[in-house]
Design a protein around this nucleic acid. Structure first.
Length: 259
DNA sequence: ATGGTTGAAGGTCAA
């Protein structure tokens, strides 16, 4: 089974790229973040025609997550138990959606950005991660993957210029501790060893062209699922303005293969 | 400190 995660930064503006991507790489399950649309706004017929069942959550122009699967899409769940919210709770539910696909419980996650370390949104981010961790302890014994945009650089190698980010979110010790907590509990991040390199490059200042990016998109797997991973890669071509149809997302997709 | 770019329910906010 081949799983992918991609922060698309608007599914409507990226629909042609998404359809081409799933075909080019023969994707079985695709988790999307920042879809930025309600279901009725989305042109999904093309993906359905390609054989995908689709579950989406999203009410506003900032969040929104989705799952596409051609190997089953059962027990869809929006949000997790006790998930903290920000602003309009109904809109913020669209940071997490889960479904069981061919026996694997897959969560598409869009972790809160945090904005600035002194912003209340940063506290919300840490609360959100803490609550996810508590809930996820209960999933360790089942094949589970938490995939998506974690908005955390777990190490300095995941930042093009750590000094520049010294006073920014994504690299602070509490955020890194939050990520490490999942690993301490027994989960494994399964993409890094197969797919080094960044997954996000800011639109500003030709960051992609100069490879000045961040590694913030991860696949965090329970032990039984982690043992099935045979490979992973980052599709940098999808971040390349010179390739594909229309403008790219600021994130590249991450693909994982399961044996 | 500011600005650079992209997307959306835009004439601003979030990333």
């Amino acid at each position: 089974m081949r799983i992918a995660t991609w922060n698309v930064n608007s599914l409507r503006s990226r629909i042609d790229r998404v359809e081409a991507f799933v075909q080019r790489h023969d994707i079985d399950v695709l988790a999307l973040q920042e879809t930025k649309a309600r279901e009725e706004q989305l042109p999904l017929m093309g993906l359905q025609a390609l054989g995908y069942d689709i579950a989406v959550a999203g009410l506003n122009q900032w969040n929104g997550v989705a799952l596409l699967s051609r190997v089953g899409l059962e027990d869809v769940q929006v949000g997790f138990e006790g998930m903290p919210t920000w602003g309009d709770p109904a809109a913020e539910e669209a940071r997490a959606i889960a479904a069981t696909c061919d026996g694997v419980r897959i969560w598409s996650l869009y972790v809160p950005n945090g904005r600035k370390p002194d912003d209340p949104h940063y506290t919300y981010k840490l609360d959100w991660l803490a609550r996810l961790r508590e809930t996820a302890r209960g999933w360790l014994d089942t094949p589970t993957a938490m995939v998506g945009d974690w908005n955390i650089c777990p190490t300095d190698d995941d930042v093009f210029d750590p000094a520049q980010f010294a006073k920014s979110t994504h690299v602070t010790p509490p955020e890194r501790a939050a990520f490490q907590g999942f690993l301490n509990d027994g989960y494994a991040e399964v993409t890094r060893e197969h797919a080094p390199g960044y997954t996000y490059w800011d639109y500003y200042r030709q960051r992609f062209e100069r490879d000045r990016g961040l590694k913030i998109d991860f696949v965090v797997a329970s032990p039984s699922l982690a043992s099935r991973v045979t490979g992973a890669f980052i599709d940098r071509d999808e971040r390349d303005p010179a390739q594909g149809t229309g403008s790219p997302s600021d994130h590249a997709p991450v693909v994982v293969d399961l044996g």
